[in-house]
């Protein structure tokens, strides 16, 4: 799980152009949206693309993103559970 979390952080920074951030700045449990990383609705869609592109997981309903993208950890857990 730790390796996946680390990899995911790198991918998120790259995919979402978070140039000001380093991996260690992202707390595993902190919320990705709102107060945490301050991501917005377009970022959520971009993360859905990331899941499909890098992990082959399709999220059909953008509303599901809310649960999946609560934190880096929830996202990693979702990937573990659904990876093909």
């Amino acid at each position: 799980m730790d390796a996946l979390i680390d990899q995911l952080k790198g991918e998120i920074i790259e995919q979402l152009n978070l140039e000001d951030l380093k991996k260690e700045d992202i707390d595993n449990e902190a919320p990705l949206f709102g107060e945490g990383l301050g991501l917005d609705s377009i970022d959520a869609l971009e993360l859905i693309v990331l899941l499909e592109k890098n992990y082959g997981i399709k999220v059909a309903n953008p509303a599901d993103g809310k649960k999946i993208f609560q934190s880096i950890r929830t996202m990693a857990e979702f990937i573990e559970a659904n990876k093909k």
Binding site: N17, I42, E46, V49, K53
Partner: peptide, 9 residues
């Protein structure tokens, strides 16, 4: 083949 929402915007 992946359209990027952040690019399309």
């Amino acid at each position: 083949y992946f359209a990027s929402p952040a690019v399309f915007v």
